[in-house]
């Protein structure tokens, strides 16, 4: 019993300890904090940042921008998927455009959008643009996979369009939507922060990351990167839990 518990604890503790050791060893071998700070220096920088109000406000604003992008990108992706599925004209017109958006590098979009949109709005616009094709692709595949026998049943049993949507389409699409949203969230987060780095708004994690790089504060650069990773993992977990709960109910 105790041996098993100990084994489990070791299994959880050893990998992070091992990689922290590798990191510390590499930092010692490099010997210059400017190039590669050790974990202790980064932890110190993180603690120093965490006591400032600016840190929390920046994280909150970045979160807000990413979620705004996720929300509009998801809504537009779902809407376009329905349009292109049910209308040949809409499909002929819009599908190539969405595919172009999917194939365009995020950096090109950031620089282009910089010309047209206020700086503070760029991260949300970019995050949404990255989310849209993913959601569109998943929903389009989901719509094509809706059981034709159930659709025939809905017609034969005189279901209204709204009822067919509620009873056949939406439940059939749930799996495609969930997996699309989880993939899209990761993309929204990365592209949103990238946009903040390239076009830094006043309060943003990406702006702080850029400022740390320009000031050659490498421990701060690492600390902000850790914040981004931690927030991304935590929010993805939260999103997964919410979606699972939604599925159960």
């Amino acid at each position: 019993m105790w041996a098993e518990r100990l084994k489990n604890c070791m299994r959880i503790a050893i990998p992070p300890v091992f990689w922290l050791g590798v990191w510390q060893l590499a930092a010692s071998l490099v010997g210059r904090e400017l190039l590669l700070p050790g974990p202790l220096a980064v932890a110190r920088a993180l603690c120093a940042l965490a006591v400032t109000g600016d840190f929390w406000l920046s994280a909150l604003m970045t979160l807000a921008r990413v979620f705004l992008g996720l929300a509009w990108g998801t809504a537009a992706g779902v809407l376009l998927a329905f349009l292109t599925h049910f209308s040949r004209w809409a499909s002929a017109l819009l599908s190539p455009a969405v595919k172009v958006v999917r194939a365009t590098p995020v950096v090109s979009f950031i620089l282009l959008v910089y010309l047209w949109v206020a700086r503070a709005a760029i991260p949300a616009v970019i995050a949404g643009l990255m989310v849209l094709p993913v959601i569109w692709g998943n929903m389009t595949a989901g719509l094509a996979a809706v059981d034709p026998q159930l659709l025939e049943l809905a017609g034969a049993y005189r279901f209204s369009r709204l009822k067919t949507l509620r009873l056949v389409y939406l439940p059939s699409l749930r799996g495609h939507f969930t997996s699309g949203l989880l993939t899209a969230f990761g993309l929204a987060w990365k592209s949103g922060v990238a946009a903040e780095v390239i076009c830094p708004p006043a309060l943003a994690v990406g702006s702080r990351l850029q400022a740390a790089r320009l000031a050659l504060e490498t421990p701060d650069l690492f600390a902000w990167t850790l914040v981004i990773i931690a927030l991304s993992l935590a929010l993805e977990r939260l999103l997964r839990l919410l979606l699972e709960r939604g599925e159960r109910t």
Binding site: Q149, L150, E152, L153, A156, Y157, L167, V168, P171
Partner: peptide, 11 residues
């Protein structure tokens, strides 16, 4: 009202 050969129930 048509009963299909398959049950066609909604899971």
């Amino acid at each position: 009202a048509f009963l299909f050969q398959e049950d066609r129930l909604l899971p």
